[in-house]
């Protein structure tokens, strides 16, 4: 699905992403783990077009998409969410979702003035769709609230909802679980699973919560210091010496030993 070839992103002398090559399979939910500052988010930014990669290539289904602008990638079905949820604060949750589908009829100046009826039809359809998405995410009671005023976890749901307004191919989720309570986290996990099954979305998930990773992700990639340390199933990752040293620490292994004992 997505193939990354020797991707570099340098900020001055700092090599945030330092030669990452990996392949993400169609229909998978890939977990991306690693210590803070490992370059996970930078990798996302470089793929999703917020930063231009210094070097290397990103291929989407064989097509070179390196360095395309975010809105161009959006039209190719590449979407991402943010570690700290972004929202259009002054708009309602429903309007936030309705912003997403682009190339809407009312977007040209001419149609704005002379195509009122078609715009109204489209708007109705969008409203229905937005309500459906809010229902799916169990936040339909918030549809008229200003998005800037809902809680952090609900903003995360809203971000997930944004990817559902159009048919995304691949979605990059940056720490969906950060600062979200358990119940809400389960809702998010279920939503991700359903989207993956029912609509065939491919996901790449950055997450620090290992339970969440365990529940959802296969395979898992571990990054550290801008490089890929390991790539494989969760069990393989957990037992990889490098990963334990750089990220998981010995705690997890000990815990499992205790469980075995």
């Amino acid at each position: 699905m997505i193939e990354i070839q020797d991707l570099h992103k340098h900020f001055g002398g700092f090599h945030a992403v330092d030669g990452v090559s990996l392949t993400i399979e169609q229909g998978s939910i890939t977990g991306l783990i690693g210590p803070n500052g490992a370059g996970k988010t930078t990798l996302f930014n470089a793929i999703a077009g917020l930063h231009k990669p210094t070097n290397g290539k990103v291929l989407l289904g064989g097509e070179d998409i390196t360095g395309l602008a975010p809105h161009q990638l959006f039209h190719k079905g590449v979407m991402r969410t943010f570690q700290i949820a972004h929202e259009f604060a002054s708009m309602s949750c429903r309007e936030n979702l309705m912003m997403v589908p682009s190339n809407q009829f009312g977007e040209t100046l001419w149609n704005t003035w002379f195509g009122r009826r078609r715009i109204a039809d489209q708007e109705r359809a969008l409203t229905a769709k937005a309500d459906e998405v809010l229902e799916f995410l169990t936040i339909s009671h918030l549809s008229d609230e200003k998005a800037g005023q809902v809680s952090g976890g609900q903003k995360k749901l809203l971000e997930l909802g944004r990817t559902m307004m159009v048919d995304a191919k691949i979605v990059f989720l940056d720490e969906v679980g950060a600062g979200v309570n358990r119940t809400l986290l389960n809702t998010i996990a279920d939503a991700i699973k359903r989207l993956n099954k029912e609509r065939g979305y491919t996901f790449v998930v950055i997450e620090h919560d290992m339970d969440f990773i365990e529940k959802l992700c296969d395979p898992v990639i571990c990054m550290a210091e801008g490089k890929v340390l390991a790539h494989g199933s969760l069990a393989e990752i957990k037992n990889n010496e490098h990963v334990i040293e750089a990220y998981l620490g010995t705690g997890l292994k000990n815990k499992e030993k205790n469980v075995v004992q």
Partner: peptide, 30 residues
């Protein structure tokens, strides 16, 4: 225009949060 039309809303969205607007497929040049 700013509150009721698609174009106006894209402009408001762009003003609200540029990164998100870009990732929502809003064409900045437009």
């Amino acid at each position: 225009f700013l509150n009721r039309t698609r174009t106006g809303k894209s402009m408001r969205a762009f003003s609200d949060n540029e990164d998100l607007a870009l990732l929502s497929g809003i064409n900045p040049e437009r």
